[in-house]
């Protein structure tokens, strides 16, 4: 994993701060949208294998709702907003006012597009704060929603990284609603910059990184 050997503690701290700022803005946006308190964990920056990445969200065949968007501009990459099925249902119930809503029974257009729009707003606020912080031009593609096995979804974000090795650097921030009965984490933001983007991000923040 020679590519990652050039990452030191300073670089990891920078990525952590990026996760902090990005997800912080996104959590605020979510909180305003739902008029609820949203709590956020301290971002976790890890260099892990593809299989370990799937294990963060319950293993490769765990079914989730995920919004995926491609980051375009100066530092391309991928972003995922991953929700457990129960949490996705709860968000849809809150947005549409239909408290009986279940994803299994109802796959109609409106609730799904509400969820997609939620993902769009959150990922958009994550990215724009990142863009402000780094002074880099970053813009999101149109978001795509999928409700499927997490392995099938996340592997899209691993394609670019897989060309340089068998590990991935993931900036993971988890969110959950306040006063949830269980302490289960219910949403994850995953930021997966393309391999070439890391030194662009570091340089933009004034830290050297050997290419």
């Amino acid at each position: 994993m020679s590519y990652f050997e050039r990452m030191d503690a300073v670089h990891m701290d920078i990525l952590k701060e990026i996760g902090n700022i990005g997800a912080g803005h996104a959590a605020t946006a979510l909180s305003k949208l739902l008029n609820k308190r949203i709590e956020m964990t301290i971002p976790d920056v890890r260099i892990i294998s593809f299989d370990e990445m799937m294990d963060i969200v319950g293993g490769a065949d765990n079914v989730v709702a995920a919004v995926f968007l491609r980051i375009e501009g100066d530092a391309p990459g991928n972003m995922f907003f991953v929700l457990s099925i129960e949490q996705a249902e709860r968000f849809i119930q809150q947005m549409t006012g239909d408290e009986q809503f279940k994803l299994e029974q109802d796959c109609s257009e409106l609730p799904l597009s509400a969820l997609q729009e939620l993902g769009n707003i959150l990922a958009g606020s994550y990215l724009s704060s990142l863009s402000d912080f780094t002074n880099l031009n970053l813009h999101p593609s149109v978001p795509a929603l999928s409700i499927d096995m997490i392995g099938a979804i996340l592997s899209y974000g691993l394609i670019e990284m897989s060309r340089v090795g068998d590990h991935v650097i993931v900036v993971d921030t988890a969110i959950h609603e306040e006063h949830q009965p269980d302490d289960r984490v219910n949403g994850h933001f995953f930021l997966l910059p393309d391999p070439e983007s890391f030194h662009i991000i570091f340089r933009a923040l004034g830290v050297e990184h050997d290419e």
Binding site: F68, R70, V142, A144, S146, D148, A152, Y156, I159, E160
Partner: peptide, 17 residues
């Protein structure tokens, strides 16, 4: 070999993987 996401714009070769 599924195509999990359908993007209307900017479909790169990598999306058709």
């Amino acid at each position: 070999g599924a195509q999990m996401f359908q993007f209307r714009t900017g479909t790169t070769d990598m999306m058709r993987i």
